[in-house]
């Protein structure tokens, strides 16, 4: 069976174009990201005090990790409410009648949005904060490419975690609370709030068993050249396993949920 890609590419293009309408939102979005990076780096400069390196981690690594992880997190998002809103307002019924896959539509929509954010928000935010805070260059061109690849998998992990939350909307209707809790956990454990080098040992060991360290932080370590070939291969394997696991789980919940879909009114 050949999947026709055209409708999905159109979905992605529309999502991209929609972002262009709200210009002021977009400019403020860039500023928001840059300010958050400045704040985190300022706090960590205070923590470092007069030390140039702590636990063998120089301050420039910390600054680079914040510039990249906060900008990644701002650009590679998944909207938790695409499917959930369709269920809440009942528009999912018309979507289900269309001869295209609703899941691929959501994926296309998300990719369209993220491409916009990568080009229009991520790039300026990294350049501005990088210039002021001293972003280190990548270890090598190869490492930069590997970093980009592992980021794609990192995004897929974020996407499928979000998809599981969204699929829960068949039972919960309002998934705001679940989404907020999920985002809080990701923000602590993925290194956007505190670089994972500085976690207490017990927590660092525990995170190795979760998908959170390979979302944003592993790509940054690859970027900085902190991983050897073996570790890089292990990182990719781990990312793929988690993506598959979450994708299968998400699909399973979706299949269960679509059978008990219940819409009030309409």
């Amino acid at each position: 069976m050949v999947i026709k890609m055209n409708p999905y590419i159109e979905y992605g293009k529309k999502a991209f174009a929609k972002n262009l309408v709200y210009r002021s939102d977009y400019i403020i979005g860039v500023f928001n990201t840059v300010i958050m990076v400045f704040i985190q780096v300022a706090i960590w400069r205070a923590i470092y005090g007069s030390n140039t390196q702590i636990n063998g981690v120089p301050f420039s690594y910390v600054a680079t990790s914040f510039v990249l992880s906060i900008c990644f997190a701002a650009a590679l998002t998944a909207n938790d409410f695409v499917l959930a809103d369709k269920v809440l307002y009942g528009s999912i019924t018309t979507e289900l009648l269309k001869p295209i896959s609703i899941n691929l539509c959501i994926m296309a929509d998300t990719i369209g949005n993220n491409l916009f954010k990568l080009i229009m928000q991520f790039a300026p935010a990294v350049i501005i904060s990088g210039l002021f805070l001293g972003l280190l260059p990548p270890a090598s061109v190869l490492m930069l490419l590997l970093c980009v690849f592992s980021l794609i998998f990192g995004f897929l992990i974020v996407y499928y975690i979000s998809y599981i939350i969204q699929a829960c909307s068949f039972w919960f209707t309002n998934v705001w609370s679940l989404s907020v809790i999920k985002n809080s956990v990701i923000s602590i454990l993925s290194g956007t709030l505190i670089p994972l080098w500085f976690l207490p040992d017990w927590l660092a060991a525990a995170i190795k068993w979760t998908p959170f360290d390979v979302i944003y932080f592993a790509p940054i370590q690859i970027y900085l050249g902190q991983m050897n070939t073996q570790e890089i291969i292990f990182t990719f394997a781990k990312q793929i396993v988690w993506v598959l696991l979450f994708a299968v789980l998400g699909m399973f919940i979706y299949k269960k949920g679509i059978k008990k879909l219940c819409i009030a009114g309409g």
Binding site: I43, I47, N55, S177, I181, S184, V185, I188, F198, P200
Partner: peptide
């Protein structure tokens, strides 16, 4: 939903505090 909402707000705001707590496991002060 009301109950989950309370929990969600609590968890979201605690995230920042947990961050501070974890930082201060390694460092003495900010």
């Amino acid at each position: 939903d009301a109950f989950l909402c309370c929990i969600a707000v609590f968890v979201r705001e605690s995230a920042g505090i947990v961050g501070v707590f974890l930082v201060l496991q390694t460092f003495n002060n900010i």
